[in-house]
Design a protein around this nucleic acid. Structure first.
Lengths: 157, 157
DNA sequence: CCCAGATAGCTGTATCTTACAGGTAATTAT
DNA sequence: ATAATTACCTGTAAGATACAGCTATCTGGG
């Protein structure tokens, strides 16, 4: 427990605390940025963007697979996908191999909107990281990637 | 614009894309982790935790200052603070120097709950980053910190 | 072949978080 | 002194999500 004395015994504890703090802060800032960011970004809400990116990456798939991948309840994805279909971003067709399932595929319009949002976001990060050295940007990207991997493989419970 | 040819001209563009992707992913994972994480973490909801941390760090302050710091609407913070007062985590008193304002201070119970959540989270990160070398953890903490600073000072609009 | 259990998706409902609009009281500037 | 601003609160609405319950379909053992 008490790891705050000047022994320096627990640098690691300190570092973990810093990481905890910074991740919490990043969540807040990210949310705030998303909320008050230009229309360019909001033509797709957060969920739609991630779904489209996943469909573009991994190809058409059914609602359950999406839900599992995104860590969301199936019902949530059902509704998101319905909205996206209404907006012409995806199409939903019966799965020929499983009468219960529906296969979700991106439409050209969906892919195009996704690319536009991606470009806008990339530009935004360009602004935010304007003063950074290329190798620092690289390090940041690496570290974030490794952190995400660690989170995905986190020991559950 | 078209930066995808094999010239390698725009490594930077690529790196920015990676950062964009990883931050988006981290948001998703972080939310999911928060949602399905043990009761230890949920004794304080997200907002209460951040507010208490800020009060502990920066001392008592009024609702507007908190809202500004957290990038939230004043009305949102009013409600969060009301809930926290109901739960005995903070107290709210009229500001002696400004009859309009209310000064929010943490209670001992609030600080203690905050510390417990912080400890649980730190432990969680210890698990998640179990295999990491100390210097990598350090680098991660640094990079996150710098990213947050950059986000805070981001060129608005 | 048939039925029991599992699975895919949908709908109803509830909760949580937040923003915006409007109101009142107090402060500041002209 | 009065107009403009600020601080806070309340009402209301929207968005995202989970959970429970439903139907249709699939799958495996008799």
């Amino acid at each position: 427990m008490n790891a705050d004395l000047s022994t320096g015994a627990d640098d690691d504890e300190v570092t973990l605390g810093r990481i905890e703090t910074e991740v919490a802060m990043l969540m807040r800032l990210g949310e705030a940025t998303r909320r008050r960011t230009g229309a360019e970004h909001r033509v797709l809400d957060r969920a739609a963007y991630v779904i489209l990116r996943h469909l573009a990456d991994a190809g058409q798939q059914n609602v359950s697979a999406l839900a599992a991948r995104l860590n969301l309840d199936g019902s949530t994805v059902t509704r998101q996908v319905s909205a996206m279909q209404r907006d012409g971003l995806i199409v939903r067709e019966p799965d020929p191999r499983d009468g219960r399932g529906m296969v979700v595929s991106p439409t050209p319009a969906g892919l195009q909107r996704m690319a536009a949002v991606q470009a806008a976001r990339t530009r935004l990060y360009g602004d935010i990281l304007a003063g950074w050295a290329p190798e620092d940007r690289d390090t940041l990207a690496d570290m974030l990637h490794r952190l995400n991997e660690a989170l995905e493989h986190r020991p559950h419970r």
